[in-house]
Design a protein around this nucleic acid. Sequence first.
DNA 1: ACGGCTTCCTACCGTTCGGTAGGATTGGGC
DNA 2: GCCCAATCCTACCGAACGGTAGGAAGCCGT
Lengths: 210, 210
Amino acid sequence: MSRERSGSTLSTRAAHLGPAVRRPLVLDAALAVWAEHGYRGTTMAAIAAQAKVSKPVLYECFDTKDAVLRALLDREEDRLMRATQQALTVDASSDLRTTVAQSYEAFFAAVLAHPVSWRVVFDAQGVLPQEIDNRYRKARAVFVRQIAELVRSLTTSGKELTDAEAAVLASNLARLAEDNATVLLSDEGHDWTPATLAAFVTRVALDAWS
Amino acid sequence: MSRERSGSTLSTRAAHLGPAVRRPLVLDAALAVWAEHGYRGTTMAAIAAQAKVSKPVLYECFDTKDAVLRALLDREEDRLMRATQQALTVDASSDLRTTVAQSYEAFFAAVLAHPVSWRVVFDAQGVLPQEIDNRYRKARAVFVRQIAELVRSLTTSGKELTDAEAAVLASNLARLAEDNATVLLSDEGHDWTPATLAAFVTRVALDAWS
DNA sequence: ACGGCTTCCTACCGTTCGGTAGGATTGGGC
DNA sequence: GCCCAATCCTACCGAACGGTAGGAAGCCGT
């Protein structure tokens, strides 16, 4: 409830920069607010306060809130893409496995280098009320832990997994379930049945441990 | 903007059911509203309208909006879990691969049987403003198509993939990237580096096609 | 039929948030 | 020094939403 500087009086007056110069500064402010307070906390008043500027100045730079968010996503997405794109270029001299491994590594490195951009562009963070969000995470954690347990109890000896590996694998299996459920329900998903899709995703996910 | 019956006059008067009897009906209404208008459209007024009841009646059933949502998630989650749980039980007589395949199949079947429950419990749908959401989906689609292209151009002949399979595989690879990026940035992710995580997820995802 | 208790409805309040009107301040050109 | 255009700020509006007050309508026992 302690929303400091929520939108009222500014202490000092901002410099005369004009929309063109201030626009990137506004995006910086929006990014900072999003990083700290999540999507729901990213209000025009909060962005203005972070930029040390009044709301009408914001509206000189961007016509609407959606315009701010779009510009922000454009910029941060571009930042991430430039960092990974070269790795996604097809290198005819290497095989698929090497290419995929390199792409993943480049992507993960980019995420570590720009964690805030990552959260803004891809992670749906802070969109739901906190209590609901916590609930969701907790439920998923239980589910994943159950899967991890199952995986560990069924892996053949000789191919044992560390705790960290089992946790990641379980999380991945759960995520694949969610992703493919979405596929199944989407407009393009009518070629699949639960059986065929399950067989396919099992092949994707598990041949290394079968 | 045509929000019918947004909260004003009701045409007929509802029956005298009392909170205990009406509570499940309220949840049904909330589910229907969520299915049609997404999370953002699920307001107390909309739920009341769908239930053909006034807002104070809602508040007789549930003290707060969060309470409604929590009860709804409890119910729908339970519905899905009951449908998949038996498949997740460890069956010592079968191997890991079979168990995973059966679990996936049970899960997908449950999702198909209760698509609305699925969307409410797992799919973050309609939380973002539509324009932003469209943007996100479009960006991801481009990304996934690029991956699909890459996968097809690199698969060794003799293990060719259909279009549908390549699309699903590409979507899965992208989702794995997102999931593992989250792992990498989470509190438990400090044991991983981009390189080790990339190697592991490649092993997870791709040994079937290497 | 009538009292009383339960249940329901209309109409409202307070807050938050996107967006705007209109006046004050700055600074560059002369 | 003075003027004018560009820029910024305070103060406000209206809509949407969660939540509530207070009275009307229905139901049941007597």
